[in-house]
Amino acid sequence: MTQIELTVNGEKRSDEVEPRLLLVHYLRELLGLRAANVGCDTTSCGACTVLLDGKSVKSCTVLAVQASGHEVTTAEGLAVGGELHPVQAAFRQQHGLQCGFCTPGMVMATVGLLAENPHPTEAEVREGLEGNLCRCTGYHNIVRAVLAAAQAQAGQVTGEQVTA
């Protein structure tokens, strides 16, 4: 067993884990954070996407020990004070989810994508989400949601600049 220390959704954690334990199983089984799902065995589907130091990673391909010393954010940690994060709100507004299984991963991938590229074109959104699979939506409303979230976030930034 190996000792790991990390921050998950702003909370400091210290746990003993098997060296082979995957981050997604650490989050789900030890911490009870079950929004991230496992949808494949090959890092192909992205249902397990979380943020590691602000960048989106597939938590099925990260060992829990590799996350030691880092900051992990899951879908559970996005909403602040009961208010949906702009990306979550956009997914609801645009009907960007149906069965919900890919959704937490899709949302986290979007947060990561918009952090890297705050003003993506439709083609860039599609490229950026290529590693996140969805069987329900045909991706149409997911793309709409990401573009809407980008716009909403840009609006917020502009708003802050105006007041400053």
Binding site: G32, A35, E76, Q88, F91, Q93, L97, F101, T103, P104
Partner: peptide, 21 residues
């Protein structure tokens, strides 16, 4: 009408069979 299902799926995630406690 926006889906009333969504907030749960977007925050804590759905409770699929593997998530059952």
């Amino acid at each position: 009408v926006l889906r009333t299902e969504d907030p749960r799926f977007l925050t804590t995630g759905g409770v699929y069979v593997e998530d059952l406690v």
